[in-house]
Amino acid sequence: MKKFNGKVLFLDRADINTDEIIPAKYLTENSKQALKPYLLEDLELDSFLAERDIAGKSVVITRSNFGCGSSREHAPWAFEVNGINLVIAESFARIFRQNMFNCGMMAIELPREVIDRLFSVIDQKDTELETDLEKNVFKISANGKTEEIPFAISDFDRALVEAGGWVDYADLKY
């Protein structure tokens, strides 16, 4: 099974949409790998520069309604080919969240106060996260300290992650 560990990219805005994650003009690509240079190309945030901040990251922590807009699975794929397979947010748009689990990736919701605290107290430049899928706990390390944050994942979502995605799961069962 995939690991969901590594350095964290913080995206400090609500309602980041799929056009910002991967603009429609790149939807003419027929391979996932071709999307790699364009991840978050149209996202304009004071604290974020795509060419500086994406490399080396494995996890995204962000605000509410992440991935709203289009149904394009190119959005999770663009994260995947950049080595990011876990997004943690206050909430997700339905299709984006489902697409993540359908690809065997994870989209995990945490309460607003926990997300707020992560943004305000953690050193956003140098944060590492480790996922313990047996105990349902994220271990977040920053500022020389490690904190454990519990999370919830439904049985179905866990089954998709374990199966490696919905195609394999559905093909076995239906």
């Binding site: 149904s71 394009r72 699975e73 999770p76 299709i95 489902q98 697409n99 359908n102 690809c103 995605g165 919905w166 195609v167 559905a170 093909d171 239906y174």
Partner: peptide, 15 residues
């Protein structure tokens, strides 16, 4: 609306 994986399973299995 669904992503490509849901679409793929829909095409293959009709669910």
């Amino acid at each position: 609306g669904v992503g490509t994986t849901d679409l793929e399973v829909g095409i293959l299995k009709g669910v």
